[in-house]
Amino acid sequence: MNQKENTESFAGRVEKKNPFTVPGNYFDSFPEKLSKRIHAGKPEKISTVERVWQVLRPQIALAAAITGFALIGYFGLRTFVETGQEWLSDEEITGYMEYYQDDFADYYLLSLLEENDFYFEEDTDIESWYYEDDPDLYIEYLYQDEIPIDLLYTDF
């Protein structure tokens, strides 16, 4: 195949020359520029750990930032929602309940009885109402020498 035949039709109309140019003195200065690049200090080698750290650092920073924002958001929201409310521990709640339960038993019950015209008989030992919860009184009672056994059964 004659190559001239392939190109002569447009080669006859288009001048066969290189239409590109370069900046002035480009080829004169290129060897020196290349030499500088070749002999420039090689970049410092980075250890594998440093390389891995460099890759992971932005991701860890991002994760830490997201966690930080989430915590700030959570505690901020919680503070906002709980404003003006007192939260009691389980022990405090139990204490209150026991305290008011006793208070109710002693005070409210007696008041209620009085309000309803309920009176104790004269020989009723009112104090014995209070003995019920004191084990020492029971023990003292049991140590009495002369306790008829039938009375003990009756009491209990």
Partner: peptide, 15 residues
């Protein structure tokens, strides 16, 4: 848009 191209219109068409 190449400032380092100085061909004529025909050469541009060829390129």
């Amino acid at each position: 848009g190449d400032s380092y191209f100085d061909g004529d219109d025909l050469q541009l068409r060829l390129q």
